[in-house]
Write a protein that binds this DNA or RNA. Structure first.
Lengths: 221, 221
DNA sequence: TCGCCCTCGTGCACGATTTCACAAAGGCCC
DNA sequence: GGGCCTTTGTGAAATCGTGCACGAGGGCGA
């Protein structure tokens, strides 16, 4: 149905990778077909949502049977653009940047780290986990030479906006921001944020509100 | 107005830390009062949303003037439970766990790392960035001795659920999961997820769809 | 003290997302 | 080949979150 309509809700897009991971697990355990119910359980959502989400990709299920695991996996990979690797650059070779370069989770899942980039000349030329640090002035060249389309900001908050601008100038329009700062990018760019301390603060909120704090005056939950 | 009503929407809760950060910046630059408009700009949202969000905390603004920065900062810190530190444990002393222990961003923002915990005896006793690795069997003791209420899962996906259960058993009911796996926790626990590869996959989707199809769009902030 | 101006707090309409419920459709057994 | 059973795909309703528009209220100048 939603074949011509190329608009997939943002909330759905955010769940697709979770389904993808579940499907990969099913392939590993040699399961041939899967029902929306089973997939829902694996992905931690509800079955109706799974069916609606998958229907945005097309009608890939078989009524009375379920979804063919391999076929769905392939279609979803294609939709997510994961049929090939996407090299990334990490901006900032400090603590966080090094840690990210060191973290195998990116490369494993099709996002090899093409380069670390830093403004500090003393860092340039060093290597972390096989990834070389380049100077930020070389960013445009690196990006075009290596086909980098995704940039990861791992600088201090103060530098984040400037770095985002440099990425944009280098033609990189997908940005993942780890810096604890609000940054703006051009309309046509995509921006996602990961703020570690922010997540903890949210947990703190719920912790605070889950049980009556003897110190807090008055209010009940 | 919403004084008796203690229910703050999840979406609002997720924005409070962003406002908090903006307020901290304003304090640094010695700004005494701030309008919803200014705060909105700093937080990257719209002014009406700021006012609505803040109204859940109480009527802390002054019409015609704006919000008193220090007072609002205090009230918000209190609401978020950030008037004191929350020690955390990091489960898993592998690549990611070490990196997180090494990352100063937690301690700086009131979440000191009390301990690293691992199941591997050969890791126990080692120290990373001043944080000692303990055996997982000692988790309950560590948690109660040090008042740890928040656990961070930094293990491989396969171990994530078991570790979540161990945290729960140790009385820890706020969990931040970095492992690329869906885990379930008891009803009364809070769970937040950070999946690095998943974020990149989402970016990949929009990248994939921005190019061939001129009408597709990315996410904005 | 009076009145004007500015910005908050919020009712309301709208849009997005979730959930329900069920008809349609494919496979399988007899 | 027909009917039954299962599970999808999808309208429609319910819920949640957003943004607008405006009345209320407070400060400040005259």
């Amino acid at each position: 149905m939603a074949d011509r309509v190329r608009h997939i809700p943002e909330a759905t897009v955010a769940r697709l990778p979770v389904y993808l991971r579940s499907l990969a697990e099913l392939v590993d355990e040699k399961t041939a077909t899967v029902s929306s119910e089973r997939l829902a359980e694996m992905a931690g959502v509800n079955a109706a949502k799974v069916r609606k989400d998958l229907s945005y990709l097309g009608s890939y299920g078989t009524r009375g049977v379920g979804y063919d695991v391999e076929y769905l996996l392939f279609q979803m990979s294609r939709e997510l653009g994961l049929t090939h690797d996407w090299p990334v650059v990490i901006m900032g070779a400090g603590n966080l940047g090094q840690a990210l370069a060191n973290y195998g989770g990116f490369t494993d899942r099709g996002f090899p780290v093409a380069a670390l980039v830093d403004a500090d000349p003393s860092k340039v030329g060093q290597t972390f986990h096989g990834v070389e640090v380049h100077h930020v002035d070389d960013l445009p060249k690196i990006a075009s030479d290596r086909g980098v389309r995704i940039g990861i900001i791992a600088t201090p908050a103060a530098a984040a906006q400037a770095v985002a601008d440099q990425l944009t100038a280098a033609g990189i329009r997908s940005i993942l921001n780890f810096a604890p700062a609000v940054i703006t990018v051009p309309e046509e760019s995509s921006l996602r944020k990961v703020d570690l301390a922010l997540e903890l603060q949210i947990l703190s909120f719920y912790q605070q509100h889950s049980q009556p704090d003897p110190e807090a005056s008055g209010s009940r939950t």
